[in-house]
Simulated assay, not measured.
Amino acid sequence: MTDILVLGAGYTGVTAAIRVARKTRRTGGKVTLVNASARFTERLRLHQTAAGERLADHRLDDVLAGSGVTFVQGRVTGLDVGRRAVELDDGRVLGYDKLIYALGTVTDASVPGVAEHAFVYDDHAGTVRLSERLDTLTGGTVVVAGGGLTGVESATELAEARPHLRVVLVTRGRPGAMMGDGARAYLDAALRRLGVEVRDGAHITKVLPDAVELGDGELIQADATLWTTGTKALPLAADSGLSVDARGRIVVDAALRSVSHPDVYAIGDAAAITQRYGVLHGTCQGGIPTGLHAADSLAATLRGRTPKPFRFGYFHQPVSLGRQDAVIQFTRPDDSPRRWYLTGRAAVTYKETVSGSPITTFRLLKRGLVPVWAFAMTAGL
């Protein structure tokens, strides 16, 4: 019997757990998945929760039913890679033979006042608190910090669902700066149509209880501030002695094994994964393929085989612009924009098809199947 412990039940962790349980069923794999919450959170849809939409409540016991994976609820507080042991917040200690680290990242709250006064998307409960705060407002201003895809989706969702509120998007660069000219122009038009006030070329130096302070000293009144400007790895990996990069992500080899402790696999946002065009940046688009590959690598190792190297290429940048609009920027494998993009209802349909509820993906994995789009990200690169 090989004890395989998976830490973190986001998209990547659940994917890896279900896949490795199926792959090691005949070779004595015993898979345990640890997560702080009993709920599976669709982080890609947290902006919808913030806007007031109540999404389905997926319990991890139900998600994992029939997969052969045992679920343990608990927050990881310690990792001893020498003893191969994980400590939980209630004092329990879980041993392992192989570990898949999928704890992801949390919001970078290094700017003064963020931790005390801003709302973040670190979990479902925190997002519900933002929604409840907005429910109390009959007017006023919501500041969204960050012009990346998460910030744009949040600003447009809030502006559409809560038109009585002033929504201000504050960003150092242009919103959706990673997109091509055509897609970015469409995104800009959607922001104007929904009445989002864009303050580009600005950065927030302090978050106050009722305002944000910009670099030039200007104050923007804020009845609620949502912070989406960046994330950072948990200190757990570095504290354990695993080799990490400058951002605290576990450095892995081509099989997604830690370069310092090969019994540990790291996936998703928690891993520094090098491809020929550079290091992957965290997205669900890349996260699920890393979960699949780590599971396959681990299973191959247990069978005495050499794992295949991980190969991945980006394919698109899907962005919702409220419930009735979206823009899809198609990309080269290195995530640079191609000429082609999709807009409007066709883009909405595309986005829902590709990044809809992952529950369907998990059901396919239990049957030994992999979604076609996951193959598309790794084939022919």
Rank of each mutant, 00 (worst) to 15 (best):
R166W: 00
T156A: 15
H164Q: 15
V142L: 11
L149G: 08
R174C: 00
V144S: 10
M178N: 06
A159R: 05
T171N: 10
L158H: 07
V170M: 01
P175A: 02
A155T: 07
T150Q: 13
S154R: 02
L149M: 13
T171H: 10
A145P: 06
V144H: 06
A161P: 15
A155G: 12
T150C: 07
L165T: 10
G151Y: 01
E153R: 13
G148M: 10
V142P: 14
P163M: 04
T156C: 15
R162F: 02
A177H: 13
T141L: 14
R172Y: 00
V168N: 07
L149C: 04
P175K: 05
M178W: 03
V143M: 03
L169R: 02
G148V: 12
T141R: 15
L158K: 08
V152Y: 06
V143G: 02
L165V: 14
R166V: 10
A177D: 08
R166H: 14
L158W: 05
M178F: 09
A155K: 01
R166Y: 00
E157S: 14
A155R: 03
V152W: 02
V143D: 01
E160Q: 15
G147Y: 03
P175E: 03
G147S: 06
L169F: 05
G148F: 08
R172E: 11
V144A: 09
A177C: 06
A145N: 10
G148H: 09
A155H: 02
V168H: 07
R166F: 00
E153A: 12
V143P: 07
E153V: 09
G173K: 04
E153L: 11
T156E: 12
V170I: 14
V152H: 08
A145G: 15
R174A: 15
T171Y: 00
E160K: 12
T156N: 11
L169V: 03
L158G: 06
H164I: 09
L165P: 15
R172Q: 12
L169I: 05
R162Y: 04
G151D: 02
A145F: 03
R174Y: 00
T150P: 00
L149N: 04
G147C: 13
V144Q: 06
T141K: 14
G173P: 00
T156G: 11
G146V: 08
L158A: 05
R172F: 01
E153P: 11
A177E: 11
V144W: 02
G173T: 11
R162H: 10
V168S: 04
P175I: 05
A177S: 14
A159C: 07
M178I: 12
T150D: 03
P175T: 05
L158T: 09
V170C: 04
E153H: 07
L158D: 06
